[in-house]
Design a protein around this nucleic acid. Sequence first.
DNA 1: TCGCGAATTTAGGTATACCTAATTCTTAGG
DNA 2: CCTAAGAATTAGGTATACCTAAATTCGCGA
Lengths: 233, 233
Amino acid sequence: MTAGQRAKNNTESVDNYLKAILYLSGVAECRVTIKALSERLLVAPASVTNMLQKLAAAPVSLVKYERHRGVQLSASGKRRALEVVRHHRLIETFLYEVLDYPIDEVHEEAERLEHFISERFEERIAAKLGDPRVDPHGHLIPTMDGKMPERLPRDLILLSDVEEAGAYLIDSFSDRSVNTLRLIEACGIAPEVRLRVKKCAPKGYEVSVGRSTKIFDLSREVARDLRLMRLPK
Amino acid sequence: MTAGQRAKNNTESVDNYLKAILYLSGVAECRVTIKALSERLLVAPASVTNMLQKLAAAPVSLVKYERHRGVQLSASGKRRALEVVRHHRLIETFLYEVLDYPIDEVHEEAERLEHFISERFEERIAAKLGDPRVDPHGHLIPTMDGKMPERLPRDLILLSDVEEAGAYLIDSFSDRSVNTLRLIEACGIAPEVRLRVKKCAPKGYEVSVGRSTKIFDLSREVARDLRLMRLPK
DNA sequence: TCGCGAATTTAGGTATACCTAATTCTTAGG
DNA sequence: CCTAAGAATTAGGTATACCTAAATTCGCGA
């Protein structure tokens, strides 16, 4: 490194690797393969190996990495990853609640900004929003001290796995597909709203949302993005 | 360029060069020297030459550059520079008005975020703020169509150039020094507020602000950052 | 237990945006 | 009008974060 250049770990890129590892290792926190990371990040496997070697060798190492045996986050890697997720979900909530963004535009903007906001910005939007527990999709927001909050033990199920008609509460939905999000929003689907499943056919679902009696047809595609909580009959 | 890589002009770095040229070329839009840019951007002169050559050679060239004769913005360069300045000043206003930032923290955050917000974000905060004309320092905000708005012709003078006691209106102040900003704010100085100059000594100034009769001593240092409008006697 | 195919790693390269050192150009003063 | 100081440019290098292609290594099934 030449004089006048500072080591800049903690780049956008590093953040994205950490987030991807966090996501892929899941609740079990198991090892993540290079291939899985490569696919999620849309980056060649060789590039992933390279980056992981750097992350592991960093002065304060962000991942535990052994050749041919996959990666896991280290304690500090996990802390950083959760901080970025906190940024992401707070920004989404802020865009939705304060700036009246359409729900399907919230993810892309947050994906960029999450890397560049300061601690102060984080603190101010959290305050403005009253320290929200979930984002507009119903996903839990990690706490300021870098932990994922426990959720009340809920009996969760994807709509696509529902096999009998009945009453449910909407827990959360994926932020992946813009089209699905538009559709979901158009039906009035939102976290903590009641969903009544009228019929489940192999091709799709008939549901009503909230107090409305209007019936919507949802495809299996959409149903895979909807996470519900069973309500007692 | 390898397959799978897209040309990414319009980087943060490019934006900063364009802003610096805009600033240094001033109202007269005269040519800017490599040395001046090098000093403003804290980058070696050789790096500046390099970057300018790229900017001039780009498919849609952002600057007019001739070896040994300095640079000027092209029409599209100027448009882009003004867009970034618009982002900067809107973000500053937003942080100050909506997120209750202290005025001395507004510049640094905006300096980072200005490069990463989308058109939608710009549009939404502008709407939220009611399309403000000036930022919290009193600086004019370029319009959506990329022009610097005309200001009413005002008879402007720096406090440091004032030689006789009298009444003035505060037009704007520099966002450069955090210390100066704190001091300025503590005195209640803000755009469009009345300032009464009681005494101007070679070492400093005695002033009162707004309706208050309290007297503040301002150093020449601070006075150089304060732009005033003369009020008729 | 051996070998083959998939996963991973190494080796070598590109573009960006910097840097220093060496060279060339400009121009202002004698 | 000529020269030397200072400005600008060229040449050659660094770090980051990618890439492709060519080795490796692992582990599963015959």
